[in-house]
């Protein structure tokens, strides 16, 4: 089984993002970037399937600027066999990313795509589902457990109210939730080895698909701040305030 793992380069999750002063976008210059945390989980799952001899090859793919090569190198250090950058200067929307991936999938013919459930910058939670629809494949989103049988997967999904297990036919697109696994860290020897693994670049233009933005961002702004709160020194004062000031309890 060949597995494709789409990985996105995003602002490190520890950093608080700021809007550009003219409101035209998000200030990213000079800030630490990293692989989207859900994609680390996706990659880890793919690598484990390879270690169990279920998967034969793991390919990491990123769509974006040349700078995304750094997370692809990380993916190689974490166990991907090869990496592909679909290069463009556009800020791609999920539909455009999925179209790029679908083109690549035509060529690479993987049986399984494991991607993150959401990119922590745009928080769209769409790409995997779109890709499955474009390909006519089954999908299993928000996975917390994946079991591979012959030509099917049994995937446990985190849903509102509990857990659901779905039996899906292959090929399939699975998106990862937080509790699927705990990703490993890249070791120094593996980082060195990764430098020799293949990293191919394809220009998005050469795929001949329409990836132009369809959403016009008019303004990026900070949300309205909450009014400052107060410190209460005892449980009695707290109850008093909740009853008489906030009026949220009887």
């Amino acid at each position: 089984m060949k597995i494709l793992v789409p990985v996105k380069r995003v602002l490190d999750y520890n950093i608080k993002p700021r809007a550009k002063s003219d409101g035209s976008g998000v200030e990213l210059s000079g800030l630490k970037m990293a692989m989207n945390p859900f994609d680390e989980i996706a990659l880890e799952e793919a690598v484990r399937l390879k270690e169990k001899n279920v998967a034969t090859e793991v390919i990491a793919v990123s769509c974006g600027q040349v700078s995304s090569q750094d997370i692809l190198r990380t993916a190689l250090a974490l166990g991907a066999d090869r990496a592909i950058l679909i290069e463009t200067d556009y800020d791609l929307e999920p539909l455009a990313v999925a179209k790029c991936l679908a083109k690549l999938i035509d060529k690479e013919q993987p049986n399984l795509v494991i991607c993150g459930k959401q990119a922590i910058d745009d928080d769209s939670n769409q790409t995997g589902q779109i890709l499955a629809a474009l390909l006519g494949w089954s999908q299993a989103t928000f996975a917390s457990k994946i079991e591979v049988t012959q030509d099917h997967l049994d995937v446990t999904r985190e849903i509102d109210g509990g857990l659901e297990t779905v039996h899906v036919s292959l090929p399939s697109v699975v998106t990862t939730d937080l509790r699927l696994n705990e990703p490993r860290f890249a070791t120094l020897p593996n980082i060195m080895k990764a430098k020799k693994k293949p990293l191919e670049t394809i220009s998005a233009q050469s795929l001949q698909i329409d990836i132009a933005p369809r959403i016009r961002v008019l303004k990026v702004r900070e949300p309205d701040p909450r009014p400052a709160g107060i410190k209460v020194d005892s449980v009695d004062t707290l109850i008093e305030k909740l009853k008489t000031d906030a009026k949220v309890i009887g």
Binding site: I130, F142, R214
Partner: peptide
């Protein structure tokens, strides 16, 4: 924008070749 909605609406958008606005 619940587990239910997030699961299928992007599929609909993709098949219509339209862009979904999340959340």
């Amino acid at each position: 924008a619940s587990a239910f909605g997030k699961n299928f609406l992007p599929r609909v958008a993709a098949r219509l070749d339209m862009t979904q606005i999340s959340d």
